[in-house]
Write a protein that binds this DNA or RNA. Structure first.
Lengths: 135, 135
DNA sequence: TCCTAAATGATAATCACTTGCATTTAATTG
DNA sequence: CAATTAAATGCAAGTGATTATCATTTAGGA
């Protein structure tokens, strides 16, 4: 996968990809990735994590999101496009996809004379976990 | 307006609000606001601009957006909810509102057991300006 | 006008992220 | 399989946006 992207297969790149693939949390920050690797006893530089994640993004291996301002999170690129619901209490992220919304978007862009390149659609709220139900 | 929000009416607050009201660009960064005031010959601190904008946000006077990662922009709170289209070339921001999308969102949140608090829906692309048409 | 809590300005600090550079390494070549 | 070299890494310093600190100033009620 890394080679396919035209990148040299190095230890840091392989292990960063492994972290993303094996994590139960699908959305990880650079900090998260760094933590996991460090706790696995692997020695890796902060800069490398950021650099590699950015390369992975350009290569289409991961997708970058900015759910909460202040830091980006990365998820492995998935076959099917989807948008997200984020719980403001526990931070849980769920995915959704709605054909109707996608179509409306396209129509709006067309009507406004925009050529769509991408979009970010995030719903924020409280999830169904009793801990997170609005006070 | 500032008083209604329970805030003391001070020169910095009044002039920051004036900048937002009189700007032809509807979405301004803290830096933008600072620049305008400085160029008007007004002496104001960077920290104050950030603090006041954050207070205005809490008071519902402005809305904060993160169209481009790295810096927030603020717009005066408007009566009608709307989402945004952002041109990746010229940075122009247009508004859109689509009832159908809003409804779909509500249904999705319900189905997923989320109590919606807010959402961010931004479409990125190239606007119709000849300068911005995709290469 | 006086008083006091709140607000400001200047500056230092923080936080997430990026960059520069000397060293190491993947992987091509002989 | 060793030599070679361009690319990748680690570390540390640098950025840019934003926040915190704190002494000084100010709004607005008494």
């Amino acid at each position: 996968m890394i080679r396919e992207a035209g990148l040299k297969l190095t230890r840091p790149r392989a292990s960063i990809l492994a972290v993303l693939e094996s994590s139960q949390k699908k959305h990880l920050s650079a900090e998260d990735v760094f933590q996991v690797l460090t706790q696995q006893g692997q020695q890796i530089g902060f800069g490398t994590v950021y650099r590699v994640l950015t390369q992975f993004e350009s290569a289409g291996i991961v997708k970058r999101h900015n759910f909460e301002e202040g830091h980006a999170v990365f998820e492995l690129h998935q076959e099917n496009h989807h948008d997200h619901l984020v719980c403001l209490r526990c931070g849980q992220v769920k995915e959704f996809f709605d054909e109707k919304i996608e179509n409306c978007q396209d129509q709006i862009a067309e009507k406004m004379g925009f050529a769509i390149i991408d979009h970010s659609h995030v719903i924020y709220g409280y999830c169904s976990d009793p801990e997170c139900t609005e006070k």
